[in-house]
């Protein structure tokens, strides 16, 4: 009885690890490609996308150990380069806690002015018709032109979507927190 069950479980685990080994590569490639095409959206004029990785130590944050403990091993930002080889800007993925779960956004930052160019909502699980309106142009465009010196906080310089305070705040948090790190990375502590 136990033997049969164990054999079944073992065969199934073996099959699954085989399938996982085959598909995980493709899944990662897909995710990378999807992110790349999103980077093209938030950094208009970009032809190629480079990935920049920074470990907590290189970031120049106050407490690299604390970051590592929180599981933030490396920070990745994306550099958009146009056809002439000029750097268009940088993009980063930010996260904020929304109503139905984590809201992930991709933010494009202009190389020359450090201003936010575009914000794209990558995924969210907010209430359809209310929180999901963070995807709308009218809300997202409020972030354009913001810099590290702006508060980027709801009810200050960001208008909330009525009935969706939490969702709106999640996006603002994601943009504000990521923006500082990102500018610090590409300015190299200037």
């Amino acid at each position: 009885m136990v033997v049969v069950l164990s054999v079944i479980a073992m065969v199934s685990a073996a099959v699954l690890s085989l399938v996982y080994g085959k598909t995980s590569v493709i899944i990662e490639e897909n995710a990378a490609r999807a992110l790349e095409s999103s980077v093209l959206e938030v950094l208009p004029g970009t032809a190629t996308v480079n990935m920049i990785r920074r470990s907590p130590d290189e970031l120049g944050v106050d407490d690299p150990q604390e970051m590592r403990e929180k599981g933030q091993e490396t920070t990745i930002i994306y550099q958009g380069v146009d056809e002439q080889g000029q750097i268009v800007g940088y993009a980063f993925v930010g996260e904020g806690n929304g109503y139905g779960g984590v809201v992930r956004v991709l933010v494009g930052v202009d190389e020359a002015t450090d201003q936010v160019l575009n914000v794209k909502i990558l995924n969210h699980a907010e209430t359809p018709g209310l929180g999901s309106r963070i995807e709308e142009e009218g809300f997202r465009s409020q972030f354009a032109g913001k810099t590290v010196d702006d508060p980027i906080t709801v009810n200050q310089d960001i208008q909330i979507i009525s009935g969706a305070t939490i969702s709106s705040r999640a996006v603002a948090d994601a943009v504000r927190e990521g923006l500082q790190d990102t500018v610090r990375i590409y300015r190299g502590g200037e």
């Binding site: 079944i8 479980a9 199934s12 996982y20 598909t23 995980s24 493709i26």
Partner: peptide, 21 residues
Amino acid sequence: PAYIVVIATFVTIVDLFMNAY
């Protein structure tokens, strides 16, 4: 339990393949 293991295996296969393709 044996049926559940069999079903869960196929479900995970579908899950992984759909995620990939």
